[in-house]
Design a protein around this nucleic acid. Sequence first.
DNA 1: ATAATAAAAGACTAATTAGTATTTTATATA
DNA 2: TATATAAAATACTAATTAGTCTTTTATTAT
Lengths: 146, 146
Amino acid sequence: MLSNASKYAVRAVLFLADKSDASTKYSAKAIGEELEIPVYFIAKLLQQLVKAGLVSSSKGPKGGFYLSEENLQNNACKILHEIDGEDVFSHCFMGLPRCGDKNPCPVHHIVSPFKDKLMAKFQKQSIKELSDEIDEKGMYLSLKDS
Amino acid sequence: MLSNASKYAVRAVLFLADKSDASTKYSAKAIGEELEIPVYFIAKLLQQLVKAGLVSSSKGPKGGFYLSEENLQNNACKILHEIDGEDVFSHCFMGLPRCGDKNPCPVHHIVSPFKDKLMAKFQKQSIKELSDEIDEKGMYLSLKDS
DNA sequence: ATAATAAAAGACTAATTAGTATTTTATATA
DNA sequence: TATATAAAATACTAATTAGTCTTTTATTAT
């Protein structure tokens, strides 16, 4: 459903949402190691997100990636769309072309409400709100030391 | 989540569950065209399932693929496992290593019940039962002519 | 100024998944 | 018994995804 790339990207962004700000930046190396993601890979992904205006960065010593206040107002869906393309969630789980409420595949009635719930998480909440919820409810972006 | 291969395979098997029996067989060509699946591809997949004992076949004129009464007693999960390997559903949706009830990723509480429901479909029901339900509830395996 | 740091850019390689084509073997039927 | 049919076996090619590496550019601090 999601590519490794977009999973990595979302985790990295949520990490930055929690830990970074304009004066506390993280290098690709630090992020990759913290989240157990290949360093060169997450570097490339974050650069792509910077280009798309979803993440902020600065070069040089004390540079790195971070989320600005504006970045925090975006929803997580934008990350997915930027990395995996616009139709990440639109394909039928069983691969049935033109599957829908009127012509459901055998698992449409299970998959459809699941997608709705995911959308509520990723689309209706801002990254800031999602990140706060992750903190409150004790969810994890990394289990490196657990 | 599922590969094209396993989606194709499940649809093909459910098609055979509905339409075939020991005296009514379908060629790979017929199945591929009916389900809008690349013919050579579904041929190869069905051959793999025959080898695994999940589908039956006979060669020559009037030959083709079909499901025997024994084949119908299997669950659909076996198809998925045969094609995509044993850990199709076990990976975390966000790619978090060691995600689980105790250490949930940000969408674990949404994904986990979804997986349970899918399991109930694919693991607890036989292919026969699933196929009957598809008939009853008017679900689709193909929308070729809709 | 210069050295060190870290992103940006871009060019790769590797692995996996998807799909196609060819040859061989078995079997029904004419 | 010859022919046509269709699976089985096998060997591919193509496309996508995953991951790595090198060079360049900008910036900070010494």
